[in-house]
Amino acid sequence: MKIECPFCGKRDHSEFTYKGDATVARPDHSEQDLDRWNDYVFQRTNPKGAHKEYWHHTNGCRKFLIVERDTISHKINSVTLVQGGGK
């Protein structure tokens, strides 16, 4: 599978590290509610089909990406930097 990093170009997936579900919202740093943190850290829906996930370009620019990928066909629909920046 190849991932097209917006900065580095198309690279083999071995350059990246999967970093989890990008559809879950992280609670605020000051959030005290344990249930909210429990949901964020442990609960996942594991959908079939299109899924948004974080990937870290570990062996490249080391930026975090949001990849929209089909969990069945591996087809990638879009790749964006979490933080736009640079060229």
Partner: peptide
């Protein structure tokens, strides 16, 4: 390092 990069890139930009 990756943990710190994650926090800076994704959580507290």
């Amino acid at each position: 390092l990756t943990h710190l990069e994650y926090l800076l890139d994704v959580v507290w930009p």
